[in-house]
Design a protein around this nucleic acid. Structure first.
Lengths: 238, 238
DNA sequence: CGAAAACTGTGTCCGATGGACACTGATGAT
DNA sequence: ATCATCAGTGTCCATCGGACACAGTTTTCG
């Protein structure tokens, strides 16, 4: 109804009526989004500002406002650009477990390649077509199981929450070389001084510093979730 | 090592050596944190700025910098203040399932009361003593199960990820009255126009608009997780 | 063919943000 | 009594997102 809201929807969902008169646009939504993604990939979402993105494209900050209503919408475009095409349906129709596992792994890879997606997707926002396609794929994998629609949505939220949690943890551990010393070292120092107050935590961390890393953590939670879902599905079927 | 990092640790973990000479401080870390929490609770984390918090306490913005190195540290204090005391150990020592379920519910309540905690706890940061105590409680519940330390950590990440996911979803749905129309209505409109491209999603959403709400969604995922953990624990024991 | 309309990109301005720094006072140890 | 120490203030700055008016360019219509 409100044209501001509908403009926001149209930006992500189209249509994009191309103007007939006037000079041809020198930029495009795609180029702008890509520039933003590039900055966010290398310097984080905090480094993405209007002037920064415009500068990357050798344009003025205000030029961008001809294409994008505001920064929130720019970030939305960046999310759609970074999330990429949803993975195609894999495996047979009945193998919901394999499909969901594969889906979660691919989602984890996307988050790993664009860690700022975590920051960009907190809070209420409007999903784009690609994001909805991702959701569609996961939900379609649960077709044929006896789960209700609400349960399928809940299972999806559960999966996404887990992947996000793993990525957040892996980002805190600092795979990008040096940040490791900025958060893991102070925490290790803390455990050395206050560790006595957290016996279970110290015990768990002592044996948690294993190889395998976050892929193992992702698979651990994933297997628990899929086991739990499997139990429910089997119960519904039997 | 760096005094900037150690100052950040000392802010959350103490000690706070009180100065002998000079005028007595008119403010305190606690009052500052509480003021910030109050603002964030009513207007969101975005409304929290140095001047805003200072104004709430009838002080100048720069006064706060006598107590807090910067805004990031202020937010860290707010998180510690809002997260509250960790729940005491409940139930018997062996009832890991009941304990974890209770723990997750209490964590969900904290997030529900302070939705901005979602925004404030993205990205790498230094945990405070209360936050670590929360973690300690959950890990302690898994004592006696045959899980390794790494597995217990993974289980914790899994639980937290789920609770966060549920809170994020419930915030998007908009429990606070009017925001519902700003994100659910456009999405419903989208499903009406583009719904044909997302058959599984439309089917799931159609039956998902049930009563029960997010408590049900929280319990659904929680039960799946606990079922999955139970299967692993039983396997290790047997 | 010429004029008007529509559109693009730019320059300038604004309020608010986080933060640096020098300064004035107040206080307590010596 | 003196003086180092510390609290709160005032001023200044770069940067942020964004509003607005303007000049230049291109297409359509009279």
């Amino acid at each position: 109804m409100s044209d501001e809201a509908s403009a926001r929807v149209r930006l992500l969902w189209g249509p994009h009526p191309k103007p007939s008169r006037g000079p041809k646009p020198a930029l495009s939504l795609d180029r702008i989004a890509q520039a933003g993604v590039g900055i966010a990939d290398t310097e984080g979402l905090g480094a993405v500002s209007m002037q920064r993105v415009a500068g990357q494209l050798d344009f003025t900050k205000m030029s961008l406002y001809r294409y994008v209503p505001g920064k929130a919408e720019l970030v939305a475009l960046m999310v759609e650009a970074a999330i990429g095409e949803a993975p195609p349906r894999t495996g047979a129709g009945g193998d919901w477990r394999g499909q969901l596992g594969d889906w979660a792994h691919r989602l984890g890879e996307v988050f790993a390649q664009h860690p700022w997606l975590l920051d960009a997707t907190v809070g209420p926002r409007l999903p784009g077509p690609r994001e909805l396609t991702w959701m569609e794929r996961a939900l379609a994998a649960l077709d044929g199981t006896g789960l209700t629609g609400a349960e399928r949505m809940d299972a999806l939220v559960l999966l996404v929450g887990h992947v996000r949690g793993i990525v957040a943890q892996s980002r805190a551990a600092g795979p990008a070389g040096e940040p490791e010393a900025r958060f893991l070292a102070p925490l290790a120092e803390l455990m050395r001084t206050h560790g006595a107050d957290y016996p279970a935590l110290t015990a768990a961390m002592a044996s948690a510093a294993q190889p395998g890393g976050h892929d193992r953590a992702l698979d651990f939670g994933l297997n628990r979730i899929l086991d739990g879902l499997g139990a429910l599905i089997a119960q519904r079927a039997g």
